[in-house]
Amino acid sequence: MQLFPCPFCGPRDEREFHFAGEIGKTRPDTTGEVSAEDWARYLNTQRNEKGRVREVWMHLTCSELFVMERDSVTMEVLSSTPLREDVE
């Protein structure tokens, strides 16, 4: 069972967390033209990398959305930072 570090709460049991997606996706501005290809890429394209990955997770008990860097092979957690940049 993994221990994930919530940037606010500290290390907690993995059962308190929920995977929210790979980092790096920006929602296209849908008030303008968005091509079907761009939208499909936004919806469906996953890097699904082996090794070092950067992902968005939610700590369900405090609802913090944060960025976790981890190794998808060894399961080692490399870093964890708040999604918002103005806090520690």
Partner: peptide
Amino acid sequence: RAHLEAWRQDGNDP
């Protein structure tokens, strides 16, 4: 609730 929290913090000003 989780859906709202995710959009609140990602793409909006929390």
